[in-house]
Amino acid sequence: NRMHLVCPMNTSPHVDPQKSGHEVWEEFSHSFTPAVREVVEFAKKIPGFRDLTQHDQVSLLKAGTFEVLVVRFASLFDVTDRTVTFLGGKKYSVDTLRAMGAGDLLNSMFDFSEKLINLGLCEEEMSLFTAVVLVSADRSGIENVNSVEALQETLIRALRSLITKNHPNESAIFTKLLLKLPDLRSLNNMHSEELLAFKVH
């Protein structure tokens, strides 16, 4: 009977012990649903995304929503004062969250957020990077790999061009951004394992 849900997509890490597991899950679902809808709305605006098959649109979103949320909500992880702001607006320190049962994923999220924010990307760059994160042809269950790959390449080219234009003296930024993709996969895997463990409990 774990009493905490240490995910910032929740309004608060505290779980009402009177509530059943199903009720806790329902409440959590209501909390993150608007964020997931925003990811879908974002995807719909990526030029070419709506031209993919419906099956592939769903597959990309199912596989990539967590990673997109990590990028979009990197600022919830304050590396200076080592706090995480939950969707309810309250900040919790790393020590507090650790005492609530947060594990390695928390540290990894801090590391990722710090490195991403330190790149100092503007909104347009971040948005294009997020599109690259979402449109990945190697996600499982993609039926038309060629179409997704073509869109992915177009987006990567656009990102490189934008970064080169905006940061002419910092050519490493584009490489650093691409290296964030495997980091996000790793965070996604860790998160899936924690979700599974939570469900088992």
Partner: peptide, 27 residues
């Protein structure tokens, strides 16, 4: 949210949002 077993109902949320759930849109 990889949610392979759709435990979080993620696929349902995504499908509804993709199709444009008119019922949930403000007037």
């Amino acid at each position: 949210f990889s949610d392979p077993a759709n435990n979080l109902g993620l696929e349902d949320i995504i499908r509804k949002a993709l199709m444009g759930n008119l019922e949930e849109r403000p007037e």
